[in-house]
């Protein structure tokens, strides 16, 4: 039996645009993350995947729902002890490494900021040692501590972002599109680094991304998000080999491959959202690990392979 590190129940995150419109960025989302796994959330832009991550780490205040992290409730009003506990054990890495690093701070101070706030270190020397240690673990060197972010390349900046998250020695890291701003060759470096760190430290990782091939490569379990709902969730095999939800199918059909001959034959399928209402669906279990959001009728039809009105071959 694996330990649940994070349990999310019916989380809702709404944004009021004006009197008439409210954006339901995350709508009734429930899932569990197990200790030591890499859990990925995929979806197109606007699906609410980044909002979900930000709500979990309390950048936003969720409208409803309950989140339990390592046995402690982290939604609603938090006392200072729980806040400190949350800040120490859950960390986030952001998409744009340039925008998320303060250009006027040296790497040493950026990375050590968490330590300073949490009063984790007593002396200057200890502070420096902690930073050097963590920089080395992400493939940077001791000389880098006195430099400013603009003196680094994109891949190196993202490593600083990783170091900043790691310095607190967290149990859980949310990585929000950490590779999409990077070149392909550098993407592979950062991904291999994340895998290495995850293995060494036994971290749990929530990986938010839109690149389905990278997600397949790195994850243990995957949740597919669309319009604020998790429409399908399961192991990598469930999602990539036996997708059931039409949205998952259309996403998978859009992945390009470095293979000209098969690309010429690839048929993309179009997804007609207007014919489904996610609010009517319930979470249906297909097996121990694989769930899909659907009504009874939809589930029956899909299992028979009937996707008429919803999926159209191009």
């Amino acid at each position: 039996m694996r330990n649940v590190i994070l349990q999310v129940d019916n989380l809702k995150q709404y944004f009021r645009i004006d009197r008439h419109t409210t954006t339901r960025a995350v709508d009734n989302v429930s899932f569990k993350v197990y200790e030591g796994e890499i859990f990925s959330v995929v979806g197109e832009s606007g699906s609410g995947k980044s909002t979900l991550g930000r709500s979990l780490i309390r950048i936003y205040d969720a409208n409803a729902g309950e989140v339990t992290f390592l046995g402690k409730k982290i939604t609603g009003k938090l006392n200072s002890e729980t806040t400190r506990f949350l800040r120490k054990n859950m960390q986030m890495i952001f998409q744009d490494p340039m925008a998320s690093l303060n250009p006027r701070k040296k790497v040493l101070d950026t990375v050590a900021f968490g330590l300073d706030v949490a009063k984790e270190v007593k002396t200057k020397e200890e502070r420096k040692q902690r930073v050097i240690e963590v920089l080395k673990s992400v493939g940077l060197s001791e000389d880098h501590i006195a430099r400013y972010p603009h003196m680094f390349s994109g891949g190196q900046r993202q490593r600083i972002g990783v170091a900043r998250a790691l310095v607190m020695d967290p149990k859980f890291i949310i990585a929000d599109e950490i590779i999409s701003a990077l070149d392909v060759s550098i993407q592979a470096q950062v991904i291999n680094l994340m895998r290495k760190i995850q293995k060494e430290k036994g971290l749990t990782l929530m990986f938010i991304a839109h690149d389905l091939s990278m997600v397949r490569y790195i994850s243990d379990r995957v949740a597919v998000m669309h319009l604020g709902h998790i429409v399908e969730m399961g192991t990598v095999e469930d999602i990539y080999e036996h997708p059931l939800h039409p949205y998952t199918k259309s996403l998978l059909s859009a992945i390009p491959h470095p293979d000209p001959d098969s690309e010429k034959l690839r048929k993309r399928v179009l997804y007609h959202k207007q014919n489904i209402d996610y609010n009517h669906g319930q979470i249906q279990s297909l097996n121990d690990t694989h769930t899909v959001l659907a009504t009874k009728e939809e589930l029956d039809a899909w299992q028979k392979g009937d996707y008429s009105d919803i999926l159209v071959q191009m």
Binding site: G155, A188, N192, R216, Y217, V236, P258
Partner: peptide, 22 residues
């Protein structure tokens, strides 16, 4: 290097070879 840094859709456990350095 460019081709091998694209993760393949078939085998999951194969390693993606990254190009070291910048």
């Amino acid at each position: 290097g460019l081709l091998s840094s694209i993760p393949s859709m078939s085998g999951q456990n194969e390693e993606i070879l990254s190009i070291p350095g910048t």
